[in-house]
């Protein structure tokens, strides 16, 4: 059964053009779905729509976002907020800006557990300590008392991951969680997310540019082009035989999965033109 089910979601910039066109995608309980597509395709918009943090200028024109069987868009804002806060979490893209600079790490992890979920302060603190251990931070007691600027980017992303898993969410949206990090750190963070996902059985909506990552972490994959889902496949099927020409081109443009000697091939113009025409009609 799918925990998250986005049905025919369309969104646009207020008074402007469409951003999402009739998007449907499902994430089953405990499943990892990759979301790929070129920059500006609307990947982040889908994640934001689910979490209820769309920019003010963007409005949803039609569709449903079913979370755990409830249509989020039909809920009053306050209820929706609490529902999302209790069952979902976000691993943000840039760990340098996603922590509040004026507050200690500890309270940034524990506060929402106490404020929103009604835990006791002591339980929240024990939980934070345990999680920092899980994300392989040494000296967790000291880190909890530090401020964000005292920590490296990799450390901060570990903390954000710990915070995301803190309340045992059913679904985590990870929006390019490694792009802002050093290449050497990226791998460790990916491994960490994958390991935690398996251990906690959390469903994951994983936004990325990197098909290599998809092949390692995800079971399902949605390919987005200009706000439209052009392919929705199991990952294994996708790499064997992409259904859509744009997906095929995307795959061909990723060096690792073709002949390495052929080097990097851009998505052919003709394919893009064809997809554009299709998206415009559909």
């Amino acid at each position: 059964m799918s925990f998250l089910s986005v049905r025919n979601l369309s969104a646009r910039v207020k008074g402007g053009g469409p951003l999402l066109r009739d998007v449907s995608l499902d994430v089953a309980v405990g499943e990892v779905r990759g979301l790929v597509g070129e920059s500006g395709a609307g990947k982040s918009m889908i994640g934001k729509a689910v979490l209820g943090i769309l920019p003010k200028a963007v409005e949803i024109t039609s569709g449903q976002i079913m979370l755990d069987g409830v249509d989020l868009l039909a809920l009053p804002p306050a209820q929706r907020r609490i529902k999302v806060g209790a069952t979902c979490a976000l691993i943000p893209q840039d760990p340098l800006t996603a922590l509040n600079p004026s507050r200690r790490i500890g309270v940034q992890i524990t506060d929402r557990l106490v404020d929103i979920l009604g835990w006791t302060r002591q339980r929240a603190e024990e939980r934070a300590l345990a999680l920092l251990g899980e994300v392989q931070i040494t000296e967790p007691t000291r880190v909890l008392r530090q401020y964000p600027h005292e920590l490296s980017g990799g450390m901060r992303q570990r903390i954000l991951i710990a915070s995301a898993f803190a309340a045992e969410p059913k679904l985590i949206v990870a929006d390019e969680p490694t792009t802002a990090l050093d290449v050497t750190v990226q791998k460790q963070i990916l491994k960490l997310i994958a390991a935690l996902q398996v251990r906690h059985g959390t469903a994951l909506l994983f936004v990325t540019h990197d098909l290599g990552v998809v092949s390692k972490v995800c079971q399902k994959l949605s390919v987005l082009y200009a706000g439209k889902v052009v392919e929705d496949s199991a990952v294994a099927d996708f790499f064997r035989a992409p259904k859509h020409p744009y997906s095929a081109a995307l795959l061909a443009a990723t060096p690792k999965y073709t002949d390495p000697l052929a080097g990097l091939q851009p998505v052919p113009e003709a394919v893009i033109a064809a997809v554009r025409a299709e998206v415009a009609h559909g």
Partner: peptide, 26 residues
Amino acid sequence: HLDYVTLARTQGYSEAKVIWSQALPN
């Protein structure tokens, strides 16, 4: 507009609470 404020929104804080306890101190 900053990321940590957005993050607090996803955690279930109300707009007023986000302004008061996340944005105001900074």
